[in-house]
Design a protein around this nucleic acid. Structure first.
Lengths: 96, 96
DNA sequence: TCTATATATCGTAATATTACGATATAACAA
DNA sequence: TTGTTATATCGTAATATTACGATATATAGA
């Protein structure tokens, strides 16, 4: 247990981005579905468009999701395999 | 991706408790050391006692650590094996 | 009892996050 | 060009978190 706080900042930043029920739902959905555009998420979350977009930007700047434009739509995907491991550790079945 | 937000609240609560550099440091330290009293953490984190205690209470109410009194001291331990898995997913080496 | 030590809780100012309507931007079509 | 759709950003009020000194509580010893 050293006191090198700085070393934990990135990890805390990623966890903070995951630590919201709406964003967790988005991330789990993306893991299942592979990719998704914004208006689909908006409908299935039943939230205002700006709210959904704001959550996506937070996930994006934490490196959790990536965006790719396709015409008018923007498709989001999970950006790092670490995320799948975290979600599995969080929600996965409990055999050690 | 359903909109059952409530189902994600507990997970978000646990992640939120982990999502702070000081608390991550405490948790990683406890995983290595097994158990630890408050004043040890206070010294090694170089933070005021009330600050350390407040972080511990947050970890405790999220079910991340457990407390056990021994004389004047209170010893903290990691309360759930899920925590080790999360920390491993977060910090562990990147094979797979 | 009184005193000391270890820890928790209170009070609170500073800061950060949240939700969401209003507005802006980017791509496409007519 | 104008209009439409999809998404992002802005402005901001409400709420939550943070840090930390002051104070309270619990245990042990004299």
């Amino acid at each position: 247990m050293d006191n090198n706080f700085k070393a934990y900042d990135d990890a805390a930043e990623m966890l903070k981005a995951l630590a919201h029920p709406v964003r967790l739902c988005m991330v789990k959905g993306l893991l299942q579905k592979g990719r998704c555009n914004v208006s689909f998420m908006q409908e299935c979350l039943d939230l205002p468009q700006s709210t959904v977009s704001q959550h996506l930007q937070k996930l994006r700047s934490a490196g959790i999701v990536a965006a790719e434009r396709s015409g008018l739509e923007i498709h989001y995907t999970i950006a790092s395999p670490k995320i799948a491991k975290l979600i599995q550790a969080m929600f996965g079945d409990d055999e050690s």
